[in-house]
Design a protein around this nucleic acid. Structure first.
Lengths: 297, 297
DNA sequence: AACAGTCTCTGACTATAGTCAGAGATGTGG
DNA sequence: CCACATCTCTGACTATAGTCAGAGACTGTT
C-alpha cells in the first residue's frame, strides 16, 4: 500500500513541489529562500550561512553561490555576524518576504484546487486519513536517542512533563530542583529522548532500584503525539535497555489520575504491586519481570 | 492538512524515490529502465521509443541518449519495429530485468523498514488511511472527458457495464448490438468518460427524450472505484451538461436489483415516476427538474 | 511518384546541481 | 602570541537534465 500510495501521491500531488516554478528561481534557490524566510521572524537577520548548510545539506561553495544569486535579486540580505565575524547572517528583504508569501499562497492554491472536485464530506475524509497517516509516518520515523538528562533538550522535555503534572494534579506537582541523579549509564541508569525534526516529543528514564529492579521514571509524551503508540514504544525501548543492563524486572509508580497511562502499563503486561517507595505523589505501583530480550517472561 | 502531510511525506518517505541510488544509474535513466521493465511482460520487446517519450514526457534527443546509455550497459535492447520501421522497440535484457527486480526489492525493503517500528495494529491503520487517501486523491484528479461513444475507450467502458449487468441480472442482460445512437452532440446527446491514468473508470451518457427531457444512460463506475462518490459526481456532471443543453429535466430508468444506484439517485434529489418507456430491463423510473445551473430546482 | 507527415537520431547548446581543494579572515585554547 | 580550528568564499571542475534545429529513414495519401 505504501508504495502504491507513493506513486499516486508523487504523480498527482508532486505538483505542490513545483511551486518554485513561477517564482523564477531554480529549485535549490527557492528552497534556500524558503528556509531563510520561514525561520525569519519579522525582518531580523534570521539564520547563519552555517545553519543553512546544515539544514539543507548543501556544499558550502554551492550555498555561497545560491545566496549571492538571491542577494543579486534583492531577496536576501547577507551581513557579518557581530558576535563571531567569521559567520554571516542571512535575512530576507521585504521583496524576499513577499516572494515567500507568494510561494505560500501558490502552494495553498494548488492544494485547494486539487481537492476542489471532492464533496465536503470527501474532503473531510481525506483530511482525516492524511492526519492519521501523518501521525503514523512521523511516529515511524522518529529517533529514540539515549542522552544525558542534563542536556538542554532533555531538560526541556522534563520541564514540560513537570508542567503537565502540575496542571493535572489537583494539589499541584512541584518537586524541588529537578533531580537527574541515577539516570546516567555510569549509575546503571539511562535517559531516552524521542526526537522528531529535532524537537523532543517524548522521553523516559531508567534508574537502578537495587535487588535487580530498574525503575521507569519521567515517562512523558507530547500531547499532540498521543494516540500513536509512542508511550508503549518508549516503554518497550526502556525495558529492552533494562534487560540489556542486566536487570531482572522493571518497576514504576504513577498517580491514580493518569488513567491512560495506567491502561497503557496494563496493556504492556505490568501487574499492580505494593508500594515500594515513599513518593508522596505516587498512588499506583506496577512491576514486570523481564525476559532476556526485554519481553515479558 | 494536505500541505503538512506533503511535507512529512516527502521528507521521510521521499527516500523511496531514491531507489535509483545503488543502481548506479542517474535518476532519469532509472526511470526509463523502470518504465520499460515494468511494461515488459516476459522478455519481449515491451514498448516503442515514442511511447516512452509520451509517458515520461521526455525530449526525443534526451531519451535517445538515455536509451543508448542503458544499451551500453546492456540493460536494454533497442530493435527496429518490423510493422513500422520508423519506430524502434525497446525491451529489457536479462541483466536489465535483474536490475529492475533489484530496484523493486530495494524499494520494498525501504517501505518495510519504514513501518518496522510500528505495531501490527498501527501498520494496519496506516495502510487503511493510505488506501482511503489514495482513492480520494485519485478521484480528485481524474478527468471527465466528453467523447464519441464509438471511440475504443468508450466502447470498452460500455462493454464492462454490460458484462456487469449480465452478471447481476438473474435473467441475464444481452442487448442487441450496442446502440450508441442519440449519445452525440449532433443529436443533442453526450457521452462522458472518467479517465484516470489513461484508463476509463466510469462513464455515463445523455440522450434527448423530447419534451424537454434528457435521459441518463449507461451510468457505470469501475468496481474498484466505488465508494469515492464517483457516480454522484458523474451524475452532477451530466445534469450540468443537460442544463447547458437547454433541457428542463432529466429522467432515467434502472433495474430494481441495483439498490446502491437507486439509493444514489434518491440522495441526488431524484423522485420516482411512472414508466416512460418500454425498456424490458427497467423496473424503476426516476426524474429530476433542473435549475439553470444543473441544481435541483 | 510526389509530398506531407512521422519517428528517431545527431550535434550543439544551456542551466542546474554538486564536488573538491584551498585561500583568507577570524576565533580559541594553551 | 602561536598553533590550530572554524567559517565563508573563490576557482576550477564534473554530471545530469533538458532544449532546439534539423538530418535521414520511413509511411500513408493523393
Amino acid at each position: 500500500m505504501l508504495r502504491r500510495f507513493n506513486r499516486t501521491w508523487t504523480q498527482r500531488v508532486g505538483v505542490l513541489e513545483e511551486t518554485h516554478l513561477g517564482t523564477g528561481l531554480p529549485l535549490a534557490a527557492a528552497r534556500v529562500l524558503w528556509e531563510v524566510g520561514g525561520r525569519d521572524g519579522a525582518d531580523g537577520d534570521g539564520t547563519t550561512v552555517r545553519d543553512l548548510r546544515a539544514r539543507l545539506g548543501l556544499d558550502s561553495g554551492h550555498l555561497t553561490r545560491l545566496l549571492r544569486r538571491l542577494e543579486d535579486d534583492d531577496l536576501v540580505r547577507v551581513t557579518p555576524d557581530q558576535r563571531d565575524r567569521r559567520r554571516r547572517l542571512v535575512g530576507v528583504t521585504a521583496a524576499g518576504r513577499e516572494r515567500c508569501d507568494r510561494l505560500e499562497r501558490r502552494s495553498q492554491d494548488l492544494a485547494e484546487r486539487l481537492v476542489e472536485p471532492l464533496t465536503e464530506r470527501q474532503r473531510d475524509r481525506l483530511a482525516e486519513a492524511l492526519a492519521t497517516a501523518d501521525l503514523l509516518v512521523r511516529a515511524a520515523t522518529l529517533e529514540l536517542r539515549t542522552v544525558d538528562p542534563d542536556e538542554p533538550d532533555a531538560r526541556a522535555a522534563v520541564a514540560r512533563y513537570v508542567a503537565e503534572l502540575d496542571d493535572r494534579f489537583a494539589a499541584g506537582f512541584a518537586p524541588g530542583p529537578l533531580d537527574t541523579g541515577g539516570l546516567r549509564p555510569a549509575e546503571r541508569g539511562a535517559f531516552v529522548l524521542a526526537v522528531s525534526d529535532g524537537d523532543p516529543v517524548a522521553c523516559g528514564g531508567l534508574r537502578d532500584l537495587g535487588e535487580g529492579w530498574a525503575e521507569v521514571k519521567r515517562m512523558w509524551v507530547d500531547p499532540s503525539w498521543r494516540g500513536a503508540g509512542l508511550g508503549a514504544r518508549m516503554l518497550r525501548h526502556l525495558e529492552a535497555e533494562a534487560a540489556r543492563g542486566g536487570f531482572a524486572g522493571v518497576r514504576l509508580d504513577t498517580h491514580g489520575s493518569l488513567t491512560e497511562a495506567i491502561a497503557m502499563y496494563e496493556r504492556a503486561g505490568y501487574r499492580r504491586t505494593e508500594r515500594y517507595n515513599d513518593n508522596p505523589d505516587a498512588e499506583v505501583f506496577f512491576e514486570k519481570q523481564l525476559g532476556w530480550d526485554g519481553s515479558a517472561r
